[in-house]
C-alpha cells in the first residue's frame, strides 16, 4: 500500500465545507476525507467537489446506513443490526420517495424563495436588509426538507420546533447581518 504523507489539518474554508456533510457521513468518512483534503491544495474545484458531495450525501442518506449494515452483516452482528435499524430515526426508514420529496422541497423552495427575494430586491432597491437575505432561500428550503430525511420518524412537535426554531435563527442571523451592514 502506498505510504501517505502525514497530513496537516485542513484549512478553515475546507473544514466549514466538510461540516455541510450529514452527521452520519462525517462519522464514517469525515476523518478520512479531512486527511485527503488536507494534502490537496485549496482550489475552487475542490470546494465545488466537496459541496456537490455534501448535497449528494444529503440526497442519498441511505448510503451510509446501508454501508454500515453490510459491514455488520459480514461480522455476523445480525441482532445488533436489527436493533439499529428499528431504532434509527434517520437513514434506515427513509425511502427513495422521501429522498425525492426532500429534493423537490429543497429545489422548489429555493426557486420560490429566490423569486420572492428578487422581487423584494426590485421593490426595495439597494437595501442592506434585503441583501442580507441572499443566502436565506437555500437555507430555508433545506430546513423545510428535513422532515423527509433527518427528522423523519420524530414526533410532529419535535419536527415543528426544529423547523420553526431553525428558520427563526436563520432569519435573526440575516437581520443581524443586515443591521451590521447598514451601520457600516
Amino acid at each position: 500500500m502506498n505510504a501517505a504523507p502525514t497530513s496537516p489539518r485542513p484549512g478553515p474554508i475546507v473544514r466549514g465545507v466538510l461540516r455541510l456533510y450529514p452527521h452520519r457521513w462525517r462519522a464514517r468518512y469525515g476523518a478520512e476525507m479531512a486527511d485527503l483534503v488536507a494534502t490537496a491544495p485549496l482550489s475552487i474545484s475542490l470546494v465545488i467537489d466537496l459541496i456537490a458531495g455534501a448535497i449528494d450525501a444529503h440526497l442519498q442518506p441511505h448510503l451510509v446506513a446501508s454501508s454500515m449494515s453490510v459491514a455488520q452483516e459480514r461480522e455476523g452482528e445480525m441482532v445488533g443490526k436489527l436493533m439499529k435499524l428499528s431504532c434509527a430515526g434517520y437513514g434506515a426508514n427513509v425511502t427513495r420517495r422521501d429522498v425525492w420529496l426532500s429534493a423537490a422541497v429543497m429545489l422548489g423552495g429555493t426557486v420560490v424563495f429566490t423569486l420572492i427575494w428578487m422581487r423584494l430586491h426590485i421593490v426595495g432597491g439597494d437595501n442592506p436588509y434585503v441583501d442580507s437575505f441572499a443566502v436565506v432561500p437555500f437555507l430555508a428550503a433545506y430546513i423545510l426538507s428535513l422532515p423527509f430525511t433527518y427528522l423523519k420518524g420524530r414526533r410532529r412537535t419535535t419536527q415543528l420546533v426544529f423547523v420553526i426554531g431553525s428558520l427563526a435563527l436563520v432569519i435573526i442571523g440575516a437581520l443581524a447581518v443586515g443591521f451590521i451592514t447598514a451601520r457600516m
Binding site: 478520512e32 485527503l36 490537496a40 467537489d49
Partner: peptide, 28 residues
C-alpha cells in the same frame, strides 16, 4: 478525483457490498 467524488463512489460501492472497509491504520 476530488474527495467528494471519491467518497461518494466509495459509499455506493460499500453499500452494495462490492468493497469492504478494513480496520484503521492511524486515521486512514
Amino acid at each position: 478525483f476530488g474527495p467528494g467524488t471519491l467518497y461518494g463512489a466509495i459509499a455506493r460501492l460499500e453499500s452494495r457490498g462490492l468493497i469492504q472497509r478494513l480496520d484503521a491504520e492511524d486515521r486512514r
